[in-house]
Amino acid sequence: MESKENIAIHCENISKEFATKGKKIRVIDNLTLNIYDNEFVVLYGPGQCGKTTIINILSGLESPSTGEVYQKNEKVMGPGPQRAVVYQSISLFPWLTVMGNVEFGLRAAGIETSKRRQRAQELIDLVGLHGFENAFPNSLSGGMQQRVGIARAYCIAPSILFMDEPFGALDAQTRYMMEQEIIRINSKEKRTILFVTNNIEEAIYLADRIIVLNNCPTSIKKEYKVEWGKPRDYTDKKFLDLREEITSIVDETP
C-alpha cells in the first residue's frame, strides 16, 4: 500500500540546466517522482538523455537548478552512505583489493576491523566472488568488477541503491547473467533500487515499475507497473508485448 510513510525518495519539480559556450541547455525539465520502499524502479530512456544527471541529483552528487530532493522527509544535501551508487564506468579503487574496496564504506564509518571484514565477506560471497578477496581490480573481468561495485554499495546498508547502467559495458550474454544475479541478490537482501538502463529487455526483466523518459530536456513520458513474478522469461508473450508497446512510444535515440 503506497502512502507517505513508505516513500524512500521524493523529488519535486526538479530541473537542471548546464551553461556551455554561453548557451544554457536544459537537461532535465520539471521532474517529479516518488520511489517507494523496497521497490525496484527502472528509469528507461533513449541514449544520453540525462539519466545519469538524474541519478547524480537524487543521490546528492549534483544539486538541481530548481526543485528539491527528499529522502524520508530529510532534504538531500550531498552524497552519503544512505544513497549508495553503482556506477557504469570504472569506479573501483584500483590500489585496493576486492576486500579493501567492499569494506571501504564501513572503514570510513569507523567500524572495527573484525566486524567490517565479516560483513564484507558475507557480501563478497553473496555476489559470487568467494576466493577473490585479495585480487586487485585489474585482474578481474568487467562482470566481476561490477559485482565488486555492487557488493561495495550493499555493504554500507544504504536505504536506497542507485544503479547507473551497471551492465552497459558487458556483452549480451554476460548481461543476461548479471540481470539474473541482481534478482537473486535482491531476493536475499532486499533493498529499494533505482536502476537506469537504455536496454528495454533489461528494464522489463528487472522492474516492478518502469519510468519511461523523454529525450532532452528529460521528463517523464509514461510509467508502467510490471506486477509479474521474478525471474521472468524474455520470450514470454506478455514480455514481448510490453516490449513492443514501450518501444513504440519511446523517443528516437538521437
Binding site: L61, P79, G80, V85, S91, F93
Partner: peptide, 15 residues
C-alpha cells in the same frame, strides 16, 4: 584524479 573515484569515496561516507 578520476572524479568518479572521488564521488564514490564521498558516497561511501569518506569525510
Amino acid at each position: 584524479v578520476n572524479p568518479t573515484l572521488l564521488g564514490a569515496a564521498r558516497m561511501l561516507g569518506m569525510k
